[in-house]
Design a protein around this nucleic acid. Structure first.
Lengths: 194, 194
DNA sequence: TCGTGTTTTCAGTAATTCTTGAAAATTCGA
DNA sequence: TCGAATTTTCAAGAATTACTGAAAACACGA
């Protein structure tokens, strides 16, 4: 790493180390970290230079980051090179990450499970296995459609929900009560909104 | 794979393939899949035999799965060997997974960010970088304490919340209104409960 | 304590994934 | 269309991670 401030160097190094745990590699993690904390968009040469990676490695890393929608291209007028920046809004980043992870890590499993549900079990063991798969399918299905829904909330609403923490239960209970007492009044509570 | 029904074989194979994406390896994924769909606890030899892995590989895999709390030891009376089973409740599995992932993938980053917050930025670039880190820190902190909270909800409450999907916003809005109209009545909505 | 059945460790090998420099492809202005 | 600037691809080597068999360690009944 060349000419990185200690603060940034520390941040970049951490992302490198964590990379493998996140399911990306060291290089990709470091490239992202660098772009994330950089005020101005960076081009591939600047990145290769700062991180002391080969130019080709940076190219591959940027492709990967783009596929995760964690960085985006931003052209600088009067410069032919491609510049990259990370989305400003951290909520947006969070959403991209969740969405992409879902697409890659969850959806294939859901398809597999759906297919498995359709097979006719031939033995008692198979019946049990299929039942277990069904439980797994239901849980994943439920949490992933929930994630879809929540993803559509505005950052503000999402933040509000999160700040509520577990007191959300009280609200849920309250809602149920209201539903029982005056069905009509709270009917809107089952509708979908932004 | 020896003597696995096509249904189970398919499931096991999928977990093997997905393993790398989940951040575990092929072996570990397959061992887990096999235990998950098996009605009776399995011992290491049975697993090694069914999956055609070496005994030592299975031993390592089981250690890994135990560290994730995805399988647990269950002794069979009159048998000295160790038997393993997966928790029955899929919600419990979900929680273990989330908790462990948080511990390994999130907490270290939170510490790093906290440390970075304390450093005095020396340049304008550093000030910007530190501000970005702060945004990241806030988001991660918020979502992880939220996860803590939600984790404490009963499976039923959690399922209820999930089934609500994005209509949770309406409830939130409603709660706000109630708060404004009659503060005292809804004060309990900010308390914490199971 | 010994001996047998069981699990764990470990060093070596195999497989996979990462990184690189060089060459090829692409882009775009002249 | 040409040519310079830039990005991408690719094959080979490097590094990392996974897997194995053999040996060591462990547990427990006799």
């Amino acid at each position: 790493m060349k000419t990185l401030s200690p603060l940034t160097a520390q941040f970049v190094a951490h992302f490198g180390e964590m990379g493998s745990r996140w399911g990306i590699n060291r290089t990709v993690g470091q490239i992202y970290a660098l772009i994330f904390v950089s005020e101005k968009p960076l081009n591939a040469d600047e990145i290769a230079d700062a991180l002391e990676f080969s130019r080709s490695n940076v190219s591959i890393g940027l492709k990967e980051l783009q596929s995760w929608r964690l960085v985006r291209l931003k052209h600088q007028s009067g410069d032919r090179r491609e510049y990259f920046e990370a989305p400003q809004d951290v909520w947006e980043i969070f959403k991209s990450l969740a969405e992409e992870r879902r697409r890659r890590e969850i959806d294939p499993t859901l398809s597999m499970l759906r297919a498995a549900m359709l097979e006719a079990p031939s033995t008692a063991a198979d019946t049990y296995a299929q039942n277990r798969m069904k439980q797994m399918h239901e849980l994943i299905e439920l949490s992933s459609t929930w994630f879809d829904d929540v993803q559509r909330l505005s950052p503000e609403t999402l933040a509000r929900l999160m700040r509520m923490g577990s007191s959300v239960k009280t609200v849920l209970d309250m809602t149920d009560k209201l539903k029982v007492v005056g069905r009509k009044k709270t009917a809107s509570a089952t509708g979908v909104s932004q």
